[in-house]
Design a protein around this nucleic acid. Structure first.
Lengths: 330, 330
DNA sequence: AGAACCGATGTAATGGTTTTCAATTAAATA
DNA sequence: TATTTAATTGAAAACCATTACATCGGTTCT
């Protein structure tokens, strides 16, 4: 494989000039430029990034670190990140931590060893303390999931408000007994949403019943199991608010096993507005997050950090939207 | 940030020795090794991969190039790839081509510029000729989607046989008029599956009707539209075989609009056994591909190519499985 | 004792590019 | 024409780690 020296010799210039043609074309005389470009063509020269990266001490690669790409929630966020990245000549690489701190750490070593210029963390497994330290040494942005007292920029929605509006919608439909199937206990967004759930009930003067609150997982199976628990209560809820669309679908599955009509006998609301919510039968009421825009903002934030641009706003909240569909409309 | 020289000075050895401690620990005296390791600890030294990569002319990073991570089909394939990669100290990076040849090319430049050691291509946008050339210069493996007269190793299922077994199942259920909603015209697997569809019908002595064959997309909307076309025929099909689960779900959606009962009045079979097929209502009959295993084999193949190991089998076919569920069981 | 060998370490070259600084040339000004 | 100034270019250092080769002290063998 040819290198910059070969080009230099072929074009009868120094390597410095070749480099300039590549990176600062306007600083070299037109005639020389032509000659160099011709040489590049002729020997099919492709700059070796490993040399360049070492010299520049930067790779223009940034990582999206998430739980698992299989989670449909991420796809549009990734799109947004990708778009801004490509517009700014950054490469993005996506890595799964699979909820495993060790695996996450393996990937974060890419940051420490200079392979990556920055990282967007979607669902950190690190301890708060380690995250803080990471953020102080490297370019880090939190996206969707975040810890706010950490001095690491983030972009997200207001989860409490979003959950509030979901539950408010159910209350408006006349429901009084509303179950809540939450996510992991230590997931910030789940905690925030629980607050929103409680707040909506309190506001309507309804006492919060612990038996209606189920801490489960984001998954399909979790949704099924927790719903089974809810439906075996003697005072069954007439509505269920689930932490994610998939969880909601698990709920619906179980509800059908119990031969209850949706939404007449029991209403269901999900979260995320993933594509399945529109395709499902019945179509699912849900909360839409501006996923693509979150990705865009996060990537822009990351670029600003990497390039030491002035950052006007380190904490960005975007608006959610309640999308009412069959599963809750009476 | 500290470098190898700092460690060397601290431990009062040469950089060569530090490097040896890092890479060939057994070649250095125990006592010295201890001293070096202590120094590494103390100044929190992390080898700079950019230097190492340049010197080694390798990064141990490989790319998974696919259409878009949002496609749920890929998730388990990625898992398989990831597992083998981590076991062998390779990093994987996932990149979307978003069906855009230009974007794909951008990412493939990472190969040409040495940033990546190899690539697993899941759904190439390149021309056959360019793919061939890529394969001759770099470590490339095709996974799931493949072109076989190309001398580039691949792992896949036998799509013709798989489609055959799906259609055979419908025939066994007594269906005679079976619609086929296919994927893109130029997608190899779609062509192969069409062959399987036709073969099954011919074998049963049923004449193939072009009106029953719809070339659409893999998407939900495509499934809806094409099904509308099929259901507006005066001789409606009593069964639909769709190229993917999502397409099948689009079909079901439309079928419900027409108030037809599934599977009594019309049966539906999908493809891929993505998680939604089990969650959907009705549960979807589909063809399961050994996705994780495909990923594992593909990654192993890629490693073998990168490391110039002997490769016993460059073309690997794995077994599919028909999974019968509500949408077609009578 | 001298030769051959082994283990442990250091020296210095190497990989490919970018960039500072100096040098050269050309153009502009006095 | 002599002097500045600006535009081009080249030489060489720098980025960091790996590794071929040389060195040195100590064994083992004959």
């Amino acid at each position: 494989m040819s290198n910059i020296k070969d080009v230099a010799e072929k074009a009868d210039v120094s390597t410095a000039t070749v480099s300039r043609v590549l990176n600062n074309p306007h600083t070299v005389k037109n005639e020389t430029k032509k000659r160099v470009q011709k040489a590049i063509q002729e020997i099919d020269y492709q700059p070796n990034m490993l040399g360049r990266n070492l010299r520049r001490s930067s790779t223009r690669m940034v990582m999206i670190l998430l739980e698992n790409v299989s989670n449909p929630f991420y796809s549009r966020v990734i799109r947004g990140i990708e778009q801004i990245a490509l517009e700014n000549d950054y490469y993005i690489v996506i890595c799964n931590n699979n909820s495993d701190p060790a695996q996450e750490n393996t990937y974060l070593n890419l940051l420490r060893s200079k392979v990556l210029d920055g990282v967007i963390m979607m669902k950190p497994e690190l301890s708060k303390k380690k995250l803080q330290e990471l953020g102080s040494r490297f370019a880090v942005v939190q996206c969707c999931e975040y810890i706010d007292d950490l001095d690491i920029p983030f972009v997200s929605i207001n989860n409490k408000k979003a959950a509030y509006s979901a539950v408010k919608h159910l209350l408006d439909q006349g429901h009084q007994n509303i179950g809540f199937i939450s996510g992991g206990q230590n997931v910030p967004s789940a905690q925030q949403r629980k607050k929103g759930y409680k707040y909506a009930l309190q506001e309507s003067g309804i006492t919060i019943k612990q038996k209606y609150i189920k801490n489960g997982t984001y998954g399909y199976k979790g949704g099924m199991e927790k719903t089974r628990e809810l439906l075996s209560l003697k005072e069954k809820p007439t509505a269920i608010f689930a932490i994610s669309d998939i969880t909601a679908i698990g709920a619906i599955k179980t509800i059908r096993e119990y031969n209850l009509k949706i939404p007449d006998e029991i209403a269901v609301v999900g979260f995320d507005n993933t594509s399945i919510s529109r395709m499902y039968n019945p179509e699912l009421t849900t909360i839409a997050q501006p996923r693509k825009e979150m990705g865009q903002k996060a990537m822009q934030l990351l670029i600003d950090i990497i390039q030491h641009n002035e950052i006007k706003n380190k904490n960005i909240f975007l608006d959610h939207k309640l999308i009412i569909r069959e599963s809750s409309k009476n």
